[in-house]
Structures are given as structure tokens and as C-alpha cells.
Amino acid sequence: MSEDQDTTPAPGTFDDVFGANAAYAEEFSLAGLKPLAARGLALVTCMDSRIEPLDMLGLEPGDAKILRNAGARVTDDTLRTLVLAVYLLGVDRVLVLPHTRCKMASVASDDAVHDLILEEHGVDTRSLEFHTDNDQLGALRHDLERIRHHPLLPQGLPVAGALYDVDSGRVDPVDL
């Protein structure tokens, strides 16, 4: 994208979400909610719009810190956020929760994603790391170990993995 290109959204582009927010604000009931994770949970999950993290785990607003990214991967930024959540926001356990039929687990490599974006959109994304892995359980195992052995997180921090099924709504613990 050139620097001269106007990136101002067309009028009305976001009217749907701002209108919905106006209705939400009229009945807003979360004022005064503390910023701590009331149930001590940090949830690392995917950005997939089929995932409703509060509902699927029986949580209420304020119960958990929810970290979402493509593929539910434990990246350096996820680790940074978990350190803050543990020491400043009341988190005392972590659940990493990828899901079935995830695009990031259905491609062979980051190269395949880079090639697809370049081919379909003409954008070279090779400066980014997408953390794709078609061995979803292997990736989950790796990510759990990253948390368990991070030098700035407490030893013995309870860390678990599970897989969310987008077709049934079930969360199945994965013993790794």
C-alpha cells in the first residue's frame, strides 16, 4: 500500500458495529468489574469467529483473561501477555485451546500461506511468521512446553491443553 493512498474508511463502513455498541451501552452492566481474572484462568484460543470462549467454558465476563490469535499459538507476544496476567491480573492457571477445522492447522507450512496470499492478493507476507502447523497436537504439545518452561512464569503453574470441536461444541482435554 503506498503512503499516498487514502485509508480512511468509506462513510457508513462501521455503522453496524457502532450502532450495536450504542444499544449495548444503554444496558451496560459491567461497570465496576475488577480487572483481575476472577476464576484465575488465562485462555489461549484461536481468533476463529465460531468460538464463544465465555459460553463454551461456563464463564462470565471478568472470570478469565482471553488471548486470541490465529491458530491459538503460544507466540512470544502470548508469553509476554501471560507473564503480565500471572503477576498483575490474578491468573493462576492456563488453558491452551485450539480447535478442529482450523485454517492454521490445515496447511503444510507458513510458505504455503505466504504463497496463497501472494497468489490471491498480490501481497508478499514473508516478513511475518504465521506459526502454521498441520500437526495440531504436536503444535499444542510444543506450546504447552513453552509455557511450562518459560523462565519468567512460576514453576508449577497449572497448564493444560484441550481441543474445541467447532461442529459439536465439545471441549476435549488433551493429555500431553
Rank of each mutant, 00 (worst) to 15 (best):
E3H: 11
D4T: 14
D6E: 08
A10F: 00
A10M: 03
G12V: 07
G12Q: 02
T13D: 05
V17M: 12
G19V: 06
G19D: 12
A20T: 07
A20Q: 11
N21H: 14
A22K: 14
A22I: 04
A25L: 15
E26W: 02
F28R: 15
L33V: 05
P35C: 05
A37F: 02
R39E: 10
A42T: 03
T45F: 02
C46M: 04
M47T: 11
S49K: 09
L54N: 15
D55Q: 07
G58I: 03
L59S: 01
E60T: 12
P61V: 09
G62A: 05
A64F: 01
A64R: 07
R68K: 15
A70T: 09
G71Q: 02
A72M: 03
A72H: 00
T75M: 02
D76Y: 02
L79S: 03
R80K: 04
L84A: 13
Y87T: 04
L88H: 15
G90F: 00
V91I: 10
V91R: 09
V94N: 08
P98S: 10
H99A: 10
C102P: 08
S106N: 13
S109H: 01
D111F: 00
D111K: 06
I117E: 10
L118R: 15
E119P: 00
E119D: 15
E119F: 04
G122T: 05
R126Q: 10
L128F: 14
L128A: 10
E129F: 00
D133W: 01
D135L: 10
Q136K: 13
L140D: 06
L140C: 09
R141D: 14
L144V: 14
R146D: 01
I147Y: 10
R148A: 12
R148S: 05
H149K: 11
H150T: 08
H150L: 08
H150Y: 11
P151R: 13
P151S: 13
G156A: 04
P158R: 13
V159D: 08
G161D: 13
G161I: 00
A162S: 11
A162K: 02
L163H: 00
D165P: 04
S168P: 06
S168A: 11
G169K: 12
V171K: 10
D172R: 14
D172M: 15
V174K: 01
L176M: 13
L176N: 05
L176S: 05
